[in-house]
């Protein structure tokens, strides 16, 4: 499992880095697809007015980054907790079995 996952992680890293180093994409800002879709809406229907506003918006890019990082950290934190817990339990089981056979 460990070796397969290390190899798979390598694939993920490569997939993510590839666009950043592709010569054909040099100078690209990698703008969000959501934003592009929003721009497309106004191109198709220039009269469209959003009829509802967000109740609250992050005051700026920095706070938005903070909140996105928080979202990722909450998820990754819980996943890490789960993985650690399971591995610890498995190790304890192994230790106990080892002890019994002694």
């Amino acid at each position: 499992m460990k070796r397969t996952n290390v190899m798979l992680l390598f694939v993920v890293v490569m997939m993510t880095l590839l666009p950043l180093v592709l010569p054909s994409l040099k100078g690209s800002e990698f703008a969000g697809a959501d934003g592009q879709a929003q721009a497309m809406i106004t191109t198709i229907d220039s009269n469209y007015q959003p009829w509802f506003e967000p109740l609250w918006e992050p005051p700026g890019g920095e706070t938005e980054t903070l909140l996105f990082a928080l979202q990722a950290a909450l998820g990754a934190g819980f996943l890490g907790y789960y993985i650690g817990l399971k591995r610890g339990a498995a190790q304890q089981d192994k230790g106990r079995k080892h002890h019994e056979t002694d």
């Binding site: 993510t16 666009p19 592709l22 994409l25 690209s28 990698f30």
Partner: peptide, 8 residues
């Protein structure tokens, strides 16, 4: 980042 030059 994606190979299309945008992110999602």
């Amino acid at each position: 980042p994606s190979v299309t030059g945008s992110s999602s």
